[in-house]
């Protein structure tokens, strides 16, 4: 570009781009810092800490981290997290689909009332329920099992049911009617006709349920006290507690490992996430 021909508009746009670029670098700096620290040697992490390029690249933090603690390899925690998360996602998708169909496509006495009840529970801070739920699960011997983390998701989640209901309401009722003429019952209509059409919203539900369960720290903290039961979130917290003579490089390495599935899903399914938040205001 020649100096004389550069219009004010171009300059403006250039400045804007530089500004946004600089700001986005600032935003991701903490994560890059953690990533680079996980690749530095232990004695380098907190010396000239802001530098992003390690003077010596090493994967020893990862090797060390995967050894885990209390005789449990980090693979155990990853396995636990995947068991809990995948079961919860399955439970949520299954229960929310069925319940949402009931609310959206079957007209029955009391439907409006119970739908209202469900919407109310969305506003309820879960903390009010934590203590009695804990006592209940404690009494029936579910502490130190995955059950309190998994089983409730098979009973539907108000927010996700609402999402699927909204989606179902957007699908034409003629679909149901023609299926009914062909002799389909409600089960047939849902599973043979509507289910394929529900795939996009069910993907959105799965992604967010995955994120919420994967990141969940409160429930594992309450219910899982044995080291071999810990999920990744809980294991990270335990590894960062000073009692283990914390090697921060190792903790950062495992933190990066714990974030990997979150990033992979984001990269693969970004469209569903952005749409999900934009249209429903979901907290990611």
């Amino acid at each position: 570009m020649l100096a004389g021909k550069v219009s004010l508009k171009t300059v403006r746009s250039f400045v804007l781009h530089v500004f946004v670029l600089a700001f986005s670098c600032l935003m991701i700096y903490p994560v890059l810092w953690m990533l680079s620290s996980s690749l530095k040697e232990g004695n380098e992490i907190f010396v000239n800490a802001h530098k992003l390029i390690p003077s010596v690249w090493t994967f020893s933090n990862y090797a060390e981290g995967f050894k885990g603690y209390s005789g449990q390899s980090f693979m155990v925690f990853l396995k636990n997290s995947f068991i809990v998360t995948i079961s919860s996602v399955l439970g949520t998708v299954l229960s929310c689909t069925v319940v949402a169909y009931g609310f959206a496509r079957i007209s029955f006495k009391g439907a409006a009332f119970f739908f209202g009840c469900m919407m109310m529970t969305m506003m309820l801070p879960a903390e009010v329920l934590t203590i009695p739920q804990y006592i209940f699960f404690h009494k029936i011997g579910w502490v130190n099992t995955f059950a309190p983390l998994i089983i409730p998701s098979f009973f539907g989640t108000a927010f996700f049911i609402f999402l699927v209901v909204q989606f179902l309401r957007g699908l034409p009722a003629e679909l149901d009617e023609s299926a009914r003429v062909d002799g389909c019952g409600h089960g047939g209509i849902l599973f043979r006709i509507l289910l394929p059409l529900l795939v996009p919203v069910l993907i959105t539900v799965s992604i967010f349920k995955f994120y919420w369960t994967w990141d969940d720290f409160f429930s594992p903290l309450l219910y899982l006290t044995k080291p071999e039961m810990a999920t990744v979130a809980l294991a990270l917290k335990n590894m960062s507690d000073n009692t283990f003579g914390t090697s921060w490089g190792m903790v950062f390495a495992m933190s990066i490992v714990s974030l990997a599935p979150v990033f992979l899903i984001f990269i693969a399914l970004q469209k569903y996430i952005v749409e999900g938040i934009s249209t429903t205001g979901m907290k990611g």
Partner: peptide, 28 residues
């Protein structure tokens, strides 16, 4: 019959609502 079916479909949520929300609320 429709009503019965309706309740059957929302049963998972309804049971969860009573068991994991209403009961704990009153207990709390």
């Amino acid at each position: 019959y429709e009503t019965l079916q309706g309740y059957l479909f929302i049963a998972p949520w309804l049971i969860g609502f009573l068991l994991f929300t209403m009961a704990p609320m009153f207990a709390s």
